[in-house]
């Protein structure tokens, strides 16, 4: 309200008012900002892809160059090198791709299944543990991963489950369930309960209701949650480092790039490795961008 009083007597300066001046200023700044954001986001992506095609000698000779020659683009030299098994002089990334895929797919399947059941119960049924669950999700959010990592490291060493993909899968499932549960529960709450009650009256059991009514209605949300969990597992680094580092045959893609970032391995080859990690995630994300952004924001705007 003070605003109006301040602005009313603005004197026209050089023929334009302050309001007009600002409209023009911010109108121009908007385009500057767009260019700025495009450059800072697109350039690293472009640079990553471009270096992955460049032979290392070319980069060292002329660091300012960021377009590889046509020959080096078509030869896929870095990609061949990074994917080839170690025994054939490569970096063995095919094996890392396989490990990462096994881990991520198993985590996605287990987390989504467990979270669907738990989220349904938390959204629809009345029982004693119910309050503890919504409260527990918050607590898990707050705990630093490193604090959970140390006891798990000790526990899995004792159980001899370290250096195994199964052990790591269990850890990933436990760490992704809270997020998945939270997202699914808020979605289930938006489904009108009358639909399910109608199913119950028609003689379906609870499981029947979940399978025939709830799941089909929430297919997009479940897909979003599954993608989200997949991406978390695919990108995970800390637990992979603590659990798998001693056995190169079990390394994930993230661990592979980090561990091989040494003097011996050309950066351009690792850039190809980075592109290999990034492409599936970006592809999945943009295939389902709307679901994911809605899922992400639905979680937070509530609070």
């Amino acid at each position: 309200m003070a605003v109006a009083q301040q602005t009313a007597p603005v004197t026209p300066k050089r023929g334009i008012t302050r309001a007009e001046f600002e409209e023009r200023l911010f109108g121009t700044l908007k385009w500057v900002s767009i260019v700025f954001f495009v450059v800072i986001t697109a350039f690293p992506l472009f640079y990553m892809i471009s270096l992955s095609f460049m032979p290392i000698q070319q980069l060292l000779q002329d660091p300012g160059r960021f377009l590889p020659s046509w020959d080096s683009i078509t030869s896929f030299e870095s990609y061949k090198d990074v994917l080839r098994p170690q025994s054939e002089g490569g970096q063995g990334f095919w094996r890392f791709v396989r490990n990462t895929l096994i881990l991520s797919l198993a985590t996605t399947f287990l987390t989504t299944t467990l979270a669907i059941f738990a989220a349904y119960a938390a959204a629809r049924l009345e029982f004693r543990l119910k309050k503890v669950i919504s409260w527990g999700i918050l607590v898990v959010y707050l705990f630093p991963a490193v604090v959970i990592a140390i006891p798990l490291f000790v526990m899995f060493t004792r159980l001899q489950l370290r250096n195994s993909l199964i052990g790591l899968t269990i850890v990933y499932v436990a760490s992704t369930i809270p997020v998945a549960l939270y997202m699914l529960r808020s979605y289930f709450l938006t489904i009108p309960p009358e639909l399910e009650e109608a199913g119950l009256i028609d003689g379906l059991s609870r499981f029947g209701v979940i399978r025939r009514i709830t799941l089909p209605l929430s297919a997009p949300a479940i897909a979003a949650v599954a993608l989200f969990v997949f991406m978390i597992a695919w990108n995970e680094f800390l637990f992979a480092l603590l659990f798998l580092v001693e056995d190169r045959g079990l390394w994930t893609l993230s661990l592979g790039v980090q561990q091989l970032d040494t003097q011996e391995v050309p950066k351009t080859v690792l850039m190809a490795g980075s592109v290999i990690i990034t492409i599936p995630v970006i592809a999945l994300f943009f295939a389902a961008e709307r679901f994911l952004t809605e899922g992400l924001t639905a979680g937070g705007v509530k609070g």
Binding site: L114, I133, G136, V147, I148
Partner: peptide, 21 residues
């Protein structure tokens, strides 16, 4: 049924997050 449905998830999270903490 509610407890039955949440139990697997709760056990996994308890065993691998809460208990370790």
């Amino acid at each position: 049924l509610g407890i039955l449905l949440v139990l697997p998830a709760v056990l996994v999270v308890f065993g691998l997050v809460i208990f370790p903490v």
